[in-house]
């Protein structure tokens, strides 16, 4: 087992377990305000300190991880769910109308500044976790579609696909039976990377107030709240940021480690 896989898996697992644990137990009630104990530095009672309402930061990080993970997972799900079939279809009908349509559509979405459009969507339809998921998910679609199409296209040139065609199998069946299993590794690795990008995007959107709304805790909004308090209590800004960095770092390391383990030659897209 390589080092980055191990480290990445551990970091990701810590956050996942923390998020799951928060459903049944948190060190303190995240809704409970405790003004006398506001902006406390980390100590034995509050391992990561408290915020400007005296809420326990560790508990908020745990509950916030739920939001981040949920948004990113669903967004990757949307991207894969729509992108992979589109990419498979484009590759299967390479050069035809379907391919042209899907590829142009991909180029178009890629040409949009994703965050700006995410802002536009959340602004128009209201801020909230659901709209953030949709906005992030839409931009995951072309990533998976393009990746799938590229990988599938080179597979379609391979002779074992020709052999399957000679055996009379339909393009859909070949895509499902021969193409998809052979690009699964690539998709898993890319999925991990999109997952980490989703966490970053969610943090950005909630930082500008367009992500999950109060009272749902989210890392991005914790940072936004902390901004005016930075001079007084730096830990309020540092703790949620470190949470984001560790989670994203963990996922990236996991992705790299998986790639090295599954197939070092895999080409993922990183933007």
């Amino acid at each position: 087992m390589n080092r980055s896989l191990l480290l990445g898996a551990c970091l990701s697992a810590i956050f996942l377990l923390g998020a799951l644990l928060s459903f049944v137990w948190t060190p303190a009630d995240v809704g409970a305000m405790d003004i006398p104990n506001r902006l406390k530095s980390p100590d034995f009672h509050h391992l990561l300190g408290t915020d400007h309402f005296g809420r326990d930061l560790l508990s908020m990080i745990m509950v916030g991880a739920r939001t981040s993970i949920a948004v990113a997972v669903v967004a990757v799900g949307i991207g894969m769910g729509a992108g992979v079939p589109l990419g498979l279809a484009a590759a299967a009908h390479s050069g035809g109308m379907i391919d042209e349509f899907i590829s142009r559509g991909n180029d178009l979405i890629f040409a949009f500044p994703s965050l700006v459009i995410a802002i536009l969507i959340t602004a128009s339809f209201g801020a909230g976790a659901i709209n953030a998921i949709i906005a992030i998910g839409i931009f995951n679609i072309p990533v998976f579609a393009r990746l799938t199409r590229g990988a599938a296209l080179s597979l379609w040139q391979r002779e074992f696909i020709l052999a399957a065609r000679v055996a009379g199998k339909s393009t859909t069946r070949i895509s499902a039976e021969h193409i998809l299993p052979n690009i699964a590794n690539l998709l898993i690795v890319q999925g991990t990377i999109q997952f980490s990008l989703g966490i970053l995007a969610e943090a950005g959107l909630s930082y500008v107030g367009l992500g999950a709304q109060p009272p749902t805790p989210s890392w991005g909004r914790m940072l936004a709240d902390a901004q005016t308090m930075v001079a007084l209590a730096p830990h309020v800004a540092i703790v949620p940021g470190l949470a984001i960095v560790s989670m994203v770092l963990g996922l990236n390391l996991l992705g790299d480690g998986l790639r090295d383990r599954l197939d070092p030659k895999l080409r993922v897209m990183r933007t």
Binding site: L200, V230, G241, V245, S246, V248, L249, L253
Partner: peptide, 22 residues
Amino acid sequence: TQLGVAIPNFWFAMLLVLLFAI
């Protein structure tokens, strides 16, 4: 770079403010 790609730029900005401005 592994660290660099994991840092949200607005948080990095806050750290810069904390260090260089405050």
